[in-house]
Design a protein around this nucleic acid. Structure first.
Lengths: 163, 163
DNA sequence: ATAAGTTGTTAGGCTGGTCTAACATTATAC
DNA sequence: GTATAATGTTAGACCAGCCTAACAACTTAT
């Protein structure tokens, strides 16, 4: 029974949640700056979200998420963070790029995939032995396009096909 | 100097490339079926893509990608496959879900992330020792929310915090 | 070779999300 | 307390991408 939100509306909700967390004052201008859209766009988005029961917005006044709105914003943010975390911690993608990508992918990733992703990060980083060696080897592999030497010498037969 | 394509246009290009590969005949009706849009939408998309120099399309006739169009379609498909591959082979996401997610994420993933992703799959699956054990452990972890017993017994101290 | 069916196009409408220009309201400064 | 600046809203345009309804062109069967 959950009204699906568009990518754009999800962005507004997320931004509002973020701003209200650290400013406690959510102003049109700030949302506008945050999302890189003009103020009239914000006003119309707020109106729409208010109609959907996701926030309260009094003319010339503040915007405040309802419980429902907050829940959705949380959810979006959770997707964002899961993706970002995976990208930075596992793939070692540049933080800025990762944040950027997360911002876009957060709107399209399915719940099933997201869950797997979250568990995967958890699995890799929180296991009893700590961050596994192979993850460090990945960075080497990425740079040099071959497995690090300890790894190669152990299984020379299979890898030495380039000589 | 590369004209950025919208997600929608990328989908058209990808579908056309796919169809022309196995049918050698690309008809409006088929594109329509493939993408789940009505025929007039296809016609207008074709017109637009033709104007952009990405395909040739004669009235009531065939659509054929230009070299440029083919290159873009290839690129989209490559993104799609990289994502799908990662989702199915590493995360063990259900194939249908994976394909679906890939279809949407392919339009938003950055080149940097995509490269990392591709290399990661390659790194994990093509290493000299073959598919690593930890990947099997991940499935177990996902199902049971704890590390498999061989793993736990080795480092009991850290994990037994739930008793 | 013409009628029937299939395929493709045109015309025009709708929606979501953006923008600019102009106006309204609130806040600040003096 | 009024002028000025900052902030927010309204009105209206635009664009992409989809749709339906109606029409046009091709294909096929007889």
């Amino acid at each position: 029974m959950e009204k699906e939100q568009s990518a754009s509306m999800e962005d507004y909700l997320e931004a509002i949640a973020l701003l209200s967390e650290r400013n406690n004052e959510v102003r049109v201008t700030e949302i506008s700056r945050t999302l890189g859209v003009k103020k009239p766009s914000v006003t119309s988005a707020l109106t729409k979200l208010a109609q959907g029961g996701l926030l309260k917005h009094e003319r010339y006044g503040q915007a405040k998420l309802t419980t429902k709105g907050q829940r959705i914003a949380q959810d979006v943010f959770h997707r964002h963070e899961t993706l970002r975390h995976f990208l930075t911690e596992i793939l070692k993608v540049d933080p800025k790029v990762a944040t950027n990508d997360a911002c876009k992918m957060e709107h399209t990733v399915s719940p099933a995939t997201l869950e797997k992703l979250a568990k995967f990060v958890e699995f890799v980083l929180n296991r009893p032995q700590g961050e596994p060696d192979w993850l460090k080897n990945f960075s080497y592999y990425f740079e040099n396009d071959e497995f690090p030497s300890e790894c190669v010498t152990r299984c020379q037969r299979e890898t030495s096909q380039k000589e």
